[in-house]
Design a protein around this nucleic acid. Structure first.
Ligand code: FES
Ligand code: FES
Lengths: 148, 148
DNA sequence: ATTAACTGATACTCATTTGGTATCAATTAA
DNA sequence: TTAATTGATACCAAATGAGTATCAGTTAAT
């Protein structure tokens, strides 16, 4: 059971890269090369982030993408929601049997509690925080020459 | 993003039903009818639980399935693991770029922390606990006549 | 002994999701 | 004018998810 799919995974890394490069445009191609992710796949994903106003773009030579929002305001939950939909433990809608009255269903109760925990746990993690951690660990520059 | 798939979902409910009926065999058919889940689908899933020794079975007339283990020892995590594989936030294996040295990768670190939380949160929930809660809410018998 | 109600095992089918690729028009800096 | 770029779509193959079907073996009741 994987929690993050490729879209979210790549999006996090792409945003980290853009965050490390704030203030200037960076092309999809260079992000893809630097991060070792498939170019076209990345492009589609960036357009989604664009549509949601997390990043801005500029066409043509020297064009590319740039981070728009404060990295500390970009939570991983937000990315999960964009690419994988809202976190929900189970569909569990209008289930007739086990739960006599849905309003008081303990299963539902327990499930929603867990949903909350998962949600809030992911909310603690922002692009800004990750970048800070990375830079603290790797030195001031986002390393792109990683050997394993 | 759904955390539990149908297999896990149904498995929880089936085990709850069996837990409420401990000591005697209950046929797949009656579980399916009572819980409103597809018969063949349920059967496959029960066979998996059988293989894992969570339940026992008896063929023939008056046969069926019976809970083997203590309901309080059956954790939801275990069921997730059986039907959806181990909880892992992201594949995140041998990723070359961003993480200069994998051993100290903060992303990985953060990801594993969350994995832990999710894992431990689900571990708190056992079939026994759920059944207890249900019975406290619905009266001593697992209600099968739920209206809504 | 026969039959009906069961499980065991396995093999399908069908729709959706996931991960990835390709194409072409529009834009922009050099 | 051209090369580097994004915008917008459309396509593809493999995996996964949910559900169905079949048939052989077992067991209790008659
Ligand atoms: S209402 Fe969904 S499990 Fe109770
Ligand atoms: S080692 Fe996987 S993200 Fe760093």
């Amino acid at each position: 059971m994987k929690v993050l799919n490729k879209n979210t995974d790549y999006a996090i890394r792409a945003l980290l890269t853009l965050a490390a490069n704030r203030g200037s445009y960076m092309s999809a191609k260079s992000i893809a090369t630097q991060q070792g992710m498939p170019y076209q796949f990345l492009r589609r994903l960036l357009q989604e982030l664009l549509k949601r106003n997390l990043i801005v773009s500029k066409g043509g030579v020297q064009g590319g993408f740039m981070l728009e929002r404060d990295p500390h305001g970009i939570r991983v939950t937000e990315l999960i929601e964009i690419f994988q939909g809202k976190v929900q433990v189970s569909e569990c809608m209008f289930r007739k049997q086990i739960c006599g009255n849905r309003a008081h269903c303990v299963l539902r109760h327990e499930i929603m509690r867990i949903e909350q925990v998962v949600q809030s746990e992911f909310e603690k993690v922002t692009i800004g925080k990750l970048l800070g951690d990375l830079q603290a660990a790797n030195g001031p520059k986002l390393t792109t020459t990683g050997n394993q």
